[in-house]
Design a protein around this nucleic acid. Structure first.
Lengths: 216, 216
DNA sequence: TTATAAAGTTAGAGTATCCTAACATTAAAA
DNA sequence: TTTTAATGTTAGGATACTCTAACTTTATAA
């Protein structure tokens, strides 16, 4: 059984090593807000537990076991977020902090019940995929809004990170998942976009915002 | 902000000091399964935080502050149990272990939402009162079933402790809160009772069981 | 009332998690 | 290619929570 602390390291490593399957001590350190030497020794500890592949001065990788255990924490986090939104009436900008705590609860039936009551959802309220009980996660091929072109019409499918401020900003512009957005123009010099959707006819979105919105 | 560990000490002390308002280091030690010297030093720490009144070789008391903080943990525990039973479909024998973990979540909105969705319940699934937001708890004057006499008809209102085995035993006999029980006879030599309720006409309940059932 | 048992306390040590300071290696730049 | 900057590692120490062993105080009983 992993400690709460270990679970947080595994989760962070899982999230960081998304693409290439590896991450550095430095990245993990910044992600967790924990100093490098501390991260370093925790990596050795997790390597002893066969959760992480550790070699001096080499990037970190999760073992299959480590990846699965990380995925289960993420599964619990995302099921919780979905439950909070769908069954308890919270907004998508309120659930991250709560789920951050609930994800560490050791009670399989609790999360299986959520899963059942929710009808086995595939994504969380931010559009992120929910790993299944075996730790498998469907990665759908979303595009960044910022990679789309003027004239296209796309549907918001996910946000890449779920910080309070970003979600509140989206709320304030009536932007939520499933919203159909038409790209009216793209500014060359700063990458910002003018888009229309719902009742809004000419909303400006900065490059930063467009990079954090995933569409299909 | 109290740590999870501190919260467990406060809760245990609250529960133990029910009647006379005090408890001993030894009792707390046995309740928590933690050795006396450890309890002793934690009591000094909590005394520094003005949560406990500590004097060498004297019984322990909670301060008003300590009592309130303990009550909030118990409130979270009992609201959680109620939510798990009423809104998620768990049995009353399944919720204690889960609530034991959920009670330590720091997110007032989470528990306020439960409270709201439940319609501000006054008791948990085991009949124990839920402290209000100020830590106030209505102690209703229940009687032990074992203190009742042959011929009386009473209604089960609470169980004094919610161990898995005890609750499963009650389930197996169709005994739940709200059940109207008639006492047909009381055995003098061992304190056991013959009772009737629902479709059962002559069920024997040991003294032990009768002492753990509260009625009105 | 003194002897003994129970409860409470102190001292010292171990594990988990974190830190800073100093040193080593690798990667980047001159 | 040598220097420098960034990253990684080791060493040693701090805090929170736990323990055992030994000692003190209080309560019980002879």
């Amino acid at each position: 059984m992993n400690s709460l602390t270990e679970e947080n390291y595994l989760k962070a490593l899982f999230n960081l090593s998304g693409g290439k399957g590896e991450a550095t001590v430095n990245e993990l350190s910044r992600q967790l807000g924990i100093k490098m030497p501390t991260v370093n020794s925790m990596m050795k500890k997790l390597a002893e537990k066969k959760l992480v592949l550790y070699q001096s001065y080499k990037p970190l990788k999760l073992t299959d076991k480590g990846r699965k255990e990380a995925a289960m924490v993420i599964r619990k986090h995302r099921l919780t977020e979905m439950f909070l939104v769908e069954k308890m009436g919270f907004g998508w900008d309120e659930v991250h902090q709560i789920a951050e705590q609930v994800e560490h609860i050791h009670a399989p039936v609790f999360f299986e019940k959520m899963d059942l009551l929710l009808g086995f959802p595939k994504v969380d309220p931010h559009g992120s995929p929910i790993p299944d009980k075996n730790g498998k996660m469907d990665w759908v091929n979303y595009r960044k809004l910022s990679d789309c072109n003027a004239g296209e019409a796309v549907i918001l499918a996910a946000v890449t990170h779920s910080s309070d401020e970003f979600l509140k900003f989206l709320n304030s512009r009536d932007l939520g998942l499933g919203v159909k957005v038409k790209i009216k123009s793209v500014e060359i010099f700063d990458g910002s976009m003018i888009v229309s959707y719902g009742k809004r006819n000419a909303e400006a979105l900065s490059k930063m915002v467009c990079e954090n919105l995933l569409v299909h």
